[in-house]
Structures are given as C-alpha cells and as structure tokens.
Design a protein around this nucleic acid. Structure first.
Lengths: 150, 150
DNA sequence: CACATCGGTTGCAACATGCTACCAAAAAGG
DNA sequence: CCTTTTTGGTAGCATGTTGCAACCGATGTG
C-alpha cells in the first residue's frame, strides 16, 4: 500500500494532533470557523477549495470531534458546522501560526488580516512559552522526556 | 493543472505559515529539530519517513529559511540541519500542538513524550492567548479585521 | 410555478506519496 | 592500505490523493 502515513498511534502528542487535523485545508477550515464561518458555502467561497475536498474534510473534522454538525441557526433546513470544545481548544495553535506568519511573511506595512481583541480592538500579545513558575522559556530551555506515565 | 493549491499570496498570515511549512512531515522534522535532531539519518530513523521524501522536505525547509545546512559539528565531512531564528520562532506552534494533543488524544495515564523545563524538570504552563493589557482571551473575545496596513 | 442557490456526488487526469533497489562518498576497522 | 559499513542521498514504479468540471436533488425565492 502507498497510503499516506498515519501518526495516530505515535507516542508524541504533536504527531497525534497533526494526524487528527488531517491536512492544511482542515486547519484553514478551523481558522474560518474561528472567524465566524458556519455554512458549507461560506467555507467554500472563503477557501476556494473544491467541493468534494471540502465535503471530505468537513466529514473527517466532524468524525474527529473538532467540528459538529448542527441545524442551521437561521431556521432553514440546512445544517451548519460549528466548533466543539475540542475544536475551540485549537485556538492557541491558530494564533501561534498567525503570529509566526505575520512576523515572517509580510513586508513591513504590507496589508494582512489581523486578529484583535473584540473589547478594545487592539492586537493580541505575542504568545509566550512559560515554565510552571512563570519564567519565559526558549527552545533551548526545554527538553523532551521520552516517555512519561502522566 | 492539478498541482496542490498554494497559499503563499494569501492575505491571511495563517495561510502563509501553512504554505511555508509545506506539509505535516515538515512540521515533524521541525519538532525533531527542537528535540535535538540534526543529521539526515537522525530525522530518518526518528520519523520513519522515506528518504526521498525527507530529502525533498529538508530542501524546502532550507529554501524557506526554516532550517539551515551547516557543516557537521563533530568535524566529519557531512552536513547538519539546524533551525534558523525563523525556525526557532515556530516554538509556540509546536508547543500549542503538543498541548492540544496531550489534552485530547491520550487516555489519563497513557504514556507519552513530554516537554519539560530543563532547569526544574517540570511541565510547562498551558499557553494563554492574552490581550494587549493581559486579559486572557477566548475565541469569542476576538475578531478578525479583514485588512490592516500594519 | 419558475428559477436560483445550497450542498453535495461522480468521473477523470495529473500529481504526490511511499516503497524498494541502487549508488557514490565518507568513515571505520584491521 | 584494503575491506566493510555507514551516510546521504537518486531513480523507478505502483498506488493514493488532489483538483477540476459536470451534474443533481432538495431547498429557498420572486
């Protein structure tokens, strides 16, 4: 078989996350869901993705418990796709990718969509990796314990 | 053409990030790099990826400025792949994915690799999305400004 | 009732993935 | 030195996956 490799039984949480999301389309669907998209057509127009691909991705996201299919909020007979709590927990992942992109792939002054605090309209603070006692950690300040039972 | 869709000219930083990384393998390569892998063979054994795929991914990561190819640190004639500053800036992304995986894809007590603070050996604090003035933000507390010139 | 929209499904061609075999340069062993 | 092993790849092939376009029934709209 030449099936795409799965990581769902990896001992590494990063690998399992990656596996659960599925592919980049899925991640962009989740991004759009955070931005307020709910309907099939909204995702399709926003992403420009082929409909068969979108169908497949929405199904795996629902199957994986990231999205959930609910009756449309406007009373129509259609359905909507909304984030589950598990899906909402991806928020820091999206924010981290967004901040990395802003800092590395836009010229100074180049326009881009921006995530802001709804109350005050200000940009968010940069994510920080902190130790249990609140020190800011760089990659070199951390290490991986190969296996842990908790 | 049926080429895989690119997002490198998207106005959304998340899309550009996703495009720059390339695919899941690339992200796991970066994860391994954070964990100390440097040599072709280390990545290959750790990931179990086919060598032609690894070759291609390493090349695009180097081309994208995430990794850099340097002479081997042990004095041999081989080369090593190390994270650039841009690559190290992916740290919060990896940590976010790791925490999401830990919380959602492992049974309580199920063993998994764990990222700890090198000084004290403790687990890290969960990432928090904060407003400019330090309030903790949930997805619903934020909104996307479609375009901004800064 | 006619027409447009929504949310898909199907078929196909091109491309990407993964596997295996192969290979040259470098290192290690004697 | 000379042989063997390791390293870091390439090349070719079968199969899977992606993206496109065409189509379609159920639903909403004038």
């Amino acid at each position: 078989m030449v099936t795409r490799t799965r990581f769902d039984d990896s001992e590494c949480p990063v690998a399992r996350s990656v596996d659960a999301i599925g592919d980049w389309w899925s991640l962009l669907i989740v991004r759009d869901a955070f931005d307020g998209s709910r309907r099939f057509g909204e995702f399709q127009r926003s992403l420009g993705v082929a409909k068969n691909i979108l169908t497949a991705r929405l199904r795996t996201l629902v199957a994986g418990g990231v999205l959930e299919s609910v009756p449309a909020s406007d009373g129509s007979a259609y359905r909507e796709y909304v984030l589950t709590p598990k899906g909402k927990a991806l928020f820091p992942v999206i924010v981290a990718l967004r901040q990395w992109g802003e800092q590395n792939f836009f010229a100074p002054g180049e326009p881009h969509s921006q995530l802001v605090d709804r109350r005050q309209g200000h940009r968010l603070r940069a994510l920080e990796v902190l130790s249990a006692d609140g020190r800011q950690l760089n990659p070199d300040d951390t290490t991986v314990h190969k296996i842990s039972t908790s």
